[in-house]
Structures are given as structure tokens and as C-alpha cells.
């Protein structure tokens, strides 16, 4: 076991080289609807139960099904209203279960990335071959259904192994949403490939805010506005990324969606300074225009260390 994953190097936030997003924008904004499938009776993983209660957890299961039957559709209409394309964190088995959702997202030119097969199948304890097979299944399933080659990864239920990042790097992924150390992207130290650590968020993720932090709909909207205002201000110095990760079974609830819209309206009103993008667009731009200058700055002002993530 490692004390430090060594997946990225220490890099002080102050005085970083300037990032200017396309059009000279200061903040790259993306929305990540998690479109997930949780199994009714998942197989046991030795490190974590599939549900907090013994299966069947009918409230947990049916609430998530509500998200798929009602919630996503309500959220899609809201994002349409503000011309925001989602970058979908997808349980890829959902392609088989609910193809209508996939078709609706394809019609909107939304991006898909992998969030594993089911959110009830964890990476803990997988062999290298098993984890690779799970990721390759994601790539093939999305490609077959949509024609898109996925470039992003968010491990199912945020469960990882020491090999996760080398595996996605070798499979030519461009970005991962699994790490939360920064408000700007940063190159990851993998054995091969060119993987960007893409700012996603737990702090403003609706699972955390409505659940663990017990926020009311109006408090969540206030937090999102303040988060955006601060990051936009800092984006004057060097471009930042803000992501709102969402789960329709939470945010699309009747008591929450309108207060949430207030935050979205606030963000949309700053179109002059904001690049409304998908994650793959941000990662693609970063790899091409910012990757090298970041590594040079880490060498100069950060603490570059040899080796790659989880090297023995």
C-alpha cells in the first residue's frame, strides 16, 4: 500500500501560467449528468455491499429507477433550455436496459464517458484482466450504440485499484474525473498515454450536497452561484474548470429542479466569460494547448518527482 499515489506532482495554485480557453474565456463549464443503473440484486463484493441495506433495498432502487423514468427527462429539458450539452457519466449497462435515454442523449449531441458497467459493480478486488475487460466493455458498448469513442472515465461508485489509471491511459483515454485535488486540469503520471485529471467535483456534487451535507434546494443553488463567482474571478489570472455533477434521482425532484435552475440561469448569464463545453472538448484543448506548459511550470515551481502512479 502506498501513502501517496504519486499520480500527479505538487503544484502551487499561485502564479500558474495563464490558460485562456477558446475565445479567451476564463472558465470552462461543464455539466455531468450521472446516468446510472443500480442492480436490484447485485453480486457481493468483499469490500463493500451493493446497497446500504440488505438487498432488496426497495427505496434506494426505486428512487434511482424514478431518476431514469422521470428525472433524466426533466433534466434534459432544463439543459436544453440553456443550450447546455451534458457529458454523461454512464453506467454502460443502461444502454441495454433503457435505450430510449441513450437515443435522447445522442440526439442532443451529448458526450458519453464510462462510469463502469453498473454502479453496483465495484473495482475493488478486480484482477488487471477483469478491470481491463470492464473498461473495454464500456468502450465497445458505447461505440456500438452511439458511434462515439469514449475518452473519459469515472470509476464505478468511485472505486479504484492501483492499476486503474495505467489501464485507461493504455486504452487512449484522454481524461479522468476521479481526482479532486484542483480547480485546473493537470497531466497524470501514467506509464503510457496522455491522461488529464479533469476537475469534476464532490463539493458541489448533488449527492454530497443534498445527502451528506443535507442542503436545502435553495442553499445548494446559493453554493453553486458562489462557487461559480469565485472561480470566474480567479479565471482572470488563469482559466479554471467548473463542473456540476448531477444525479437526476436527486436534482430533478419536484422540490429541487426550480431552485437548481436559478443557479444555472446565473451561470448562463455570464456567457461572455464562460466556455460551455463538454469534458472531452476541455480535455482535448488542454492536451493540445496546455499540457506542455503545465509540465514545464511544475518543473520550475512545483515539486516534480520521478516515477508514475503506484509504481512499486
Amino acid at each position: 500500500m502506498h501513502a501517496d499515489p504519486n499520480l500527479y506532482d505538487y503544484w502551487p495554485y499561485r502564479d500558474r501560467p495563464r490558460i485562456a480557453w477558446p475565445g479567451g474565456k476564463k472558465l470552462a463549464f461543464w455539466v455531468a449528468p450521472n446516468i446510472e443503473f443500480y442492480e436490484f440484486d447485485p453480486p457481493a463484493n468483499p469490500s463493500r455491499p451493493g446497497w446500504p441495506r440488505p438487498a432488496p433495498d426497495v427505496v434506494g432502487y426505486s428512487q434511482r429507477d424514478w431518476g431514469n423514468r422521470i428525472g433524466h427527462w426533466r433534466l434534459m429539458e432544463l439543459l436544453d433550455k440553456y443550450a447546455i450539452r451534458g457529458s454523461i457519466s454512464l453506467s454502460t449497462a443502461l444502454i441495454d436496459h433503457h435505450p430510449e435515454i441513450i437515443e435522447a442523449c445522442v440526439a442532443r449531441r451529448w458526450e458519453f464517458f464510462s462510469h463502469g458497467i453498473y454502479n453496483t459493480r465495484y473495482s475493488y478486488g478486480m484482477s488487471e484482466a477483469q478491470e481491463r475487460a470492464m473498461i473495454e466493455d464500456s468502450i465497445a458498448s458505447v461505440e456500438k450504440a452511439t458511434g462515439q469513442r469514449i475518452r473519459g472515465y469515472l470509476a464505478p461508485a468511485l472505486t479504484h485499484t492501483e492499476r486503474t489509471f495505467d489501464l485507461i491511459a493504455a486504452l487512449d483515454f484522454w481524461y479522468t474525473c476521479d481526482l479532486f485535488q484542483d480547480d485546473q486540469p493537470q497531466p497524470l503520471k501514467t506509464k503510457s498515454g496522455k491522461v488529464v485529471s479533469m476537475p469534476y467535483s464532490l463539493e458541489v456534487n448533488d449527492v454530497i450536497t443534498y445527502g451528506a451535507m443535507a442542503m436545502s434546494p435553495w442553499r445548494y443553488a446559493d453554493v453553486l452561484k458562489r462557487h461559480f463567482d469565485q472561480l470566474l474571478q480567479e479565471g482572470e489570472r488563469s482559466g479554471v474548470v467548473m463542473c456540476i455533477p448531477l444525479h437526476a434521482y436527486l436534482v430533478s425532484q419536484a422540490h429541487r429542479i426550480r431552485p437548481f435552475e436559478e443557479a444555472l440561469r446565473h451561470i448562463a448569464s455570464h456567457a461572455d466569460d464562460v466556455w460551455f463545453a463538454t469534458a472531452v472538448e476541455i480535455a482535448g484543448f488542454y492536451r493540445e494547448h496546455c499540457w506542455d506548459q503545465t509540465i514545464a511550470d511544475i518543473d520550475r515551481r512545483g515539486l516534480a518527482r520521478p516515477g508514475v502512479g503506484f509504481a512499486p
Partner: peptide, 18 residues
Amino acid sequence: TPYPDLRHYTTRDYGVRV
């Protein structure tokens, strides 16, 4: 969470970096 809990490692590291 079970090792490797990158979620909490990186959210704590955020404080020291940013």
C-alpha cells in the same frame, strides 16, 4: 473508503495545493 481511497486523499490534498 477501502484502499485506495483517492476520493478523500485528493479532497484533502486540495487544501494544500489550492
